[in-house]
Each structure stands twice: as structure tokens, then as C-alpha cells.
């Protein structure tokens, strides 16, 4: 069964007399356990698509089925509950709360579960998610005391803490160096392989897209190509590093 099913999805923005078609009819099915990389140049509609997939925005036209349920026109509060339970977000800028410890950052989604989760359980689950990211020793560090890679791992722990079926990552490696980027890709691959979590990764870098099991290229709000891919191993070195070594 497909976890995501898009049919004729359109999103138009009106700017004065101008009409911008950010998504111009996207039809797409993503099955449980896929690692889909969506690539395309800037302005091609990748982020718009991710916002709709993440129930942060609603399409102007078309249908979006998530886990078999039509979510295209659900009220705001129900969309909030779906984001809370079924979707984990990873952002380019990490979006950690400043002057807040790592474990408290990971707890944020647990604050909004219904029924309300007791504080002790929130802490326990957040610690478990941090431990899975190898950051149990850093639980009381503030974001500014952590490296970029560690910050992104805290953000991934936060995305995972409510055990979602879908992870949406918008340029998660945009602010990271190559070595750390590969680390993050390995984590995402492991989540797919070990837990069967579906991953939708948005990137404009072909190198990063290569880690997915399927690569979708978008241009001007339309799907340009949609190919299965043999995921690149995170044990390989990135081309830049090979060049550095050669020199």
C-alpha cells in the first residue's frame, strides 16, 4: 500500500495580477519504506511540495491521500494532530530552540500529543531518541554548544521521537560539510532499513540524491523524471574527498 498518493496536485499563488503555479499537476505514489529523493533547481516547487506533504499547507487543486486518508481539506487542528503523530520534519537550518537543552528540544513534539503525555514519560522517550542518535551524553547541552552535525542529529531525534511513519527532510545537509552530510545520510538510510520508515528527502545536490532508493526530478512544478535508484553506500567516500586525497 502506498503511504503517499498525490493526484493532479496543484498549488497556485496569486501575487497581484501575477499567478505563480508552484505545483502544476503532480501525480505520484510513494510506498511504505521508500527513500525518495526529490531534486530540482531552485524555484522548481520542491519546498511547496514538501509543505503539502507535511500537512503544513493545503493544495489549491487535486487530492492528497496519506496512509489511505484524504487529508487535502482537513481542518487545521486535525492536520496538526497528523503532523504530530505521523510526520517528522528535518530542516536545513536545524530549527532547534536556542538556549534550550538538547533533550528539551527533542521533547517538543511530545508536548502536543493528545492525550497529554506525563512529563516523566516525555523525558524518557526523548532520552531514548537521543541515545539512538548517540547523543545521550549531550542531553543537557544547548544548541550553541553542539557542532552542526550534532545539532542535526538532535533535530533528527526530535523528528523520530513520536515514532512517525514518514520523515520529510528539506535540504537537511545544506548547512553541513561533506563528511557530516554523509553521516546524516547514513542515519536516514538506517532508519529506512531498520524501522521501515518512509523518507522523502529534498535536495538540489545530485550527490545527496544518490543515497535514495528513488530519484524524482521536478522542474517548474512538474515531475520531469521518476527513476528507481541503487542507493549509494555511505561507506564510499564522497568525490570531493577523493580529490583531496589524490592531491
Amino acid at each position: 500500500m502506498s503511504i503517499i498518493s498525490l493526484q493532479g496536485l496543484k498549488k497556485t499563488y496569486k501575487l497581484g495580477d501575477n499567478i505563480v503555479q508552484a505545483l502544476a499537476g503532480v501525480t505520484l505514489d510513494i510506498a511504505q519504506g521508500e527513500f525518495v529523493a526529490i531534486t530540482g533547481p531552485s524555484g522548481s516547487g520542491k519546498s511547496t511540495m514538501m509543505h503539502i506533504l507535511g500537512c503544513l499547507d493545503r493544495p489549491t487543486e487535486g487530492k492528497y491521500m496519506l496512509n489511505g486518508k484524504d487529508v487535502s481539506s482537513l481542518p487545521r487542528d486535525e492536520l496538526a494532530d497528523i503532523r504530530n503523530k505521523q510526520i517528522g520534519f528535518v530542516f536545513q537550518g536545524f530549527n532547534l530552540l536556542p538556549r534550550t537543552t538538547a533533550v528539551e528540544n527533542v521533547e517538543v513534539p511530545l508536548l502536543y500529543t493528545r492525550p497529554v503525555m506525563p512529563a516523566a514519560e516525555r523525558r524518557e522517550r526523548a532520552m531514548k531518541a537521543l541515545t539512538a542518535m548517540g547523543l545521550q551524553d549531550r542531553y543537557d547541552h544547548h544548541p550553541n554548544q553542539l557542532s552542526g552535525g550534532q545539532q542535526q542529529r538532535v533535530a533528527i531525534a526530535r523528528a523520530l521521537v513520536n515514532e512517525p511513519t514518514l520523515i520529510l527532510a528539506d535540504e537537511p545537509t545544506g548547512n553541513l560539510d561533506t563528511k557530516t552530510s554523509i553521516e546524516v545520510m547514513r542515519i536516514l538510510q538506517e532508519l529506512r532499513e531498520e524501522k521501515g520508515i518512509t523518507i522523502v528527502l529534498i535536495t538540489h545536490e545530485p550527490d545527496i540524491a544518490a543515497y535514495g532508493t528513488r530519484i524524482i526530478a521536478v522542474r517548474d512544478g512538474k515531475i520531469l523524471s521518476d527513476e528507481p535508484n541503487t542507493p549509494r553506500s555511505t561507506l564510499e567516500m564522497a568525490p570531493e574527498q577523493i580529490m583531496v586525497t589524490a592531491n
Binding site: G54, R76, D77, A80, R83, N95, L97, P109, L111, Y112
Partner: peptide
């Protein structure tokens, strides 16, 4: 603003 965005993305309702 970003904190609010993050909370909403994490499942906070507007009433929260």
C-alpha cells in the same frame, strides 16, 4: 517566529 513555526510543524494546534 521560527520557534512558533517549529512548534506548529511538531503538531501544536493554534490554541496551544
Amino acid at each position: 517566529t521560527r520557534e512558533i513555526g517549529l512548534r506548529v510543524a511538531s503538531g501544536a494546534r493554534s490554541s496551544d
